Amino acid sequence: MEARVSESIEIAVPPSVVYEAVTDVANMGRWSPECTGADVKDDGLRPGVRPGMKFTGHNRSAKRPWSTQCTVTAAEPGERFAFLARGAGLRVAIWSYRFEPLDSGQATKVTETWIDQRGWFMHFIGPKVSGIHDRATHNRQTMKVTLQRLKETLEKEHQSS
């Protein structure tokens, strides 16, 4: 059975602002307790976030760092962002974000979802690499932290602008 974890939060800024922050994957480390950032594979031909764009996500647990190779699968400004993460060429997870306008578009409900895509080998090797044995519970906890930090940062930045 496929594991799926989702968390949501309301942020008092427009969906376009939240979308821009979340899709700036190089800066995800500002909010995430596990992801430390990313390196975007920019071919220079088509700037901006788009389906097919690739990046390397960098992560760190208490045990050690690791990276995933990611491919954007959805990039709908102000609405949806998703990517497939792979490790050693094998599927690891699909991460997605939905941005729903609230308060006549002045606020946003953000839903972050993780869908486990690991096969038997990644289920076996993953805990050895990351030190995380219950990935679903761990991701739910880190998603709550990430979304709360995102909310605090964006509301503070938006209020002062």
Rank of each mutant, 00 (worst) to 15 (best):
E76T: 13
Q106M: 14
R4G: 01
P33M: 04
A62V: 10
E10M: 01
W114K: 00
A82T: 03
T71Q: 15
V40H: 04
A21Y: 03
T73Y: 08
E76F: 05
G57E: 10
P51L: 07
G89R: 06
A38G: 07
C35Q: 11
A21R: 13
W31D: 02
K41C: 03
G119P: 07
G57Q: 14
P47T: 09
A21L: 05
I11A: 01
I94M: 05
A74D: 12
Q106D: 13
T23M: 00
I94S: 01
S32I: 03
A12H: 07
Y97K: 02
E34T: 15
E112C: 10
A38L: 04
R4A: 02
F124Y: 15
C35G: 03
S6M: 01
V49L: 06
T113V: 02
P77C: 14
L45M: 14
F83R: 09
R60P: 05
L102S: 04
L84F: 03
R64P: 02
L45F: 01
N27S: 14
A3Y: 04
I9Q: 04
A88K: 11
C70L: 12
L84D: 06
V25D: 02
T108H: 09
F55H: 15
T71A: 13
S67Q: 13
W31R: 03
A21N: 07
A3F: 03
V49M: 14
K54D: 00
V18D: 01
D39H: 04
P15V: 05
A107Y: 13
E10N: 05
A62T: 12
V13S: 04
P127F: 07
T71V: 15
W31N: 07
W95P: 00
E76V: 12
A38K: 06
H58T: 04
D43I: 10
D39S: 11
K54E: 12
R91A: 09
S67C: 09
A26S: 11
F83L: 10
E2A: 15
W114F: 12
P33L: 05
W120G: 08
T113M: 07
Y97T: 00
A12M: 08
T73S: 12
V72K: 10
T111Q: 13
A85I: 07
A26V: 02
R80S: 15
P33C: 03
G78C: 06
V17H: 06
M53R: 11
L84N: 05
R98P: 00
K128N: 04
T111G: 13
V25P: 02
A38H: 03
E76C: 09
Y97G: 00
K128A: 13
A21C: 05
L84G: 00
Q69I: 06
T108K: 08
V17W: 02
G57R: 12
W120Q: 05
P14D: 07
A107T: 14
K54G: 00
W31A: 03
R118M: 12
P15G: 05
A21H: 05
I11F: 01
G57V: 14
